[in-house]
């Protein structure tokens, strides 16, 4: 029977630690050999750790990986690491300076598509300008410093190049800059611009008298009227999708809902007979949607319910 009578002693004790007879038998066995203590500890460890271990059966790593995969870009993206740009550019230049010249004159105007799924991602253009895309956004860009924002929002950090302006098109509007940083968002019927540094020309695609928007200022292009309107409130949350900071200053219920739906990619439905909601003054830093909603329902007298991507506020 080999070790088995000993193992039987151990199991008897583990199953009934309160039983004095089982304990005495175990003690006797432990005393009989100095090595027995280590053996017992291993069994005890397995015994203790296996309690309630059934919860691990519910972990479906395959399904979890699929959910995570949905938050990554659809396919391999052409993003180049920031620091390797110079090296890559130099190598490309050495190998095919002539070819590049030929290429750029022929196909430099061809647009390359870049889209994000559930996560923020960025692309560095050949001139060193960097574009950071909000989740579920899409751009097309070429090598002539022309970018089309087809959907969503993006932060543009444009390398200065005095000889060639950098042009962004979105929803019928055009932003023309030399070197600056700005956020552009295409939302139903309008294009929102917020300038972080420098100054840009903002106007209708085909217009000839664009508006100058400078650092720290926001402006909205209204597609229906084909005109630009300055908007100071845009500065509050224009880049919050990137920074995770939400700021509300005397914000109306409507503004709060619009900001939340833009920030978290959800639909907010207000079912309230009482329209006299107090204005909101608050800062939220790096909070999840549920945490913001919890704070709001604590501050004000509303209740919310979350069903998938829709929030109902009562």
């Amino acid at each position: 029977m080999g070790e088995h009578p000993d193992l039987y002693t151990i199991v008897q004790h583990l199953q009934a630690p309160e039983d004095p007879a089982a304990r005495a038998a175990l003690e006797a066995w432990l005393q009989s050999d100095a090595g027995n203590e280590a053996i017992f500890r291993e069994y005890e460890r397995i015994w203790t750790l296996s309690a309630g271990i059934g919860e691990l059966s519910g972990i479906d790593a395959e399904a979890a990986a699929r959910r995570f995969r949905a938050r990554l870009p659809q396919a391999r993206t052409a993003r180049l690491p920031w620091r390797r740009i110079a090296a890559a550019a130099a190598a490309a230049l050495l190998i095919s300076a002539g070819l590049w010249y030929w290429n750029s004159s022929r196909s430099g105007a061809r647009f390359v598509r870049f889209a994000t799924a559930g996560a923020i991602d960025s692309v560095v253009l050949e001139d060193g300008s960097r574009i950071v895309l909000k989740p579920r956004s899409e751009i097309r860009y070429n090598q002539r410093r022309e970018v089309m924002l087809d959907s969503g929002a993006a932060l543009f950090d444009v390398r200065s190049a005095p000889s060639q302006p950098f042009t962004t098109y979105a929803g019928g509007a055009k932003v023309e800059v030399l070197g600056t940083a700005y956020n552009l968002a295409s939302v139903k019927g309008q294009v929102q611009l917020y300038v972080l540094s420098g100054a840009v020309h903002f106007g209708p695609e085909a217009g000839h008298s664009p508006t100058l928007v400078s650092s720290g200022k926001g402006a909205v292009y209204l597609r229906a009227q084909q005109r630009v309107e300055m908007n100071d409130r845009l500065g509050l949350n224009a880049t919050s999708w990137r920074t995770g900071e939400l700021r509300f200053v005397d914000a109306s219920m409507q503004e709060v809902c619009e900001t939340l739906s833009a920030q978290y990619g959800v639909t907010v439905v207000v079912n309230s007979r009482n329209n006299a909601h107090p204005a909101l003054n608050a800062n939220f830093s790096q909070l999840t949607l549920d945490e913001v909603l919890q704070s709001l329902s604590a501050l004000y007298d509303y209740q919310y319910e979350r069903r998938n991507d829709t929030i109902y506020i009562r």
Partner: peptide, 15 residues
């Protein structure tokens, strides 16, 4: 920038 390979690493460490 291979999202499929990265998701594989996620699956490995998830449990």
């Amino acid at each position: 920038r291979d999202p499929d390979a990265f998701a594989g690493i996620y699956r490995h460490y998830f449990p």
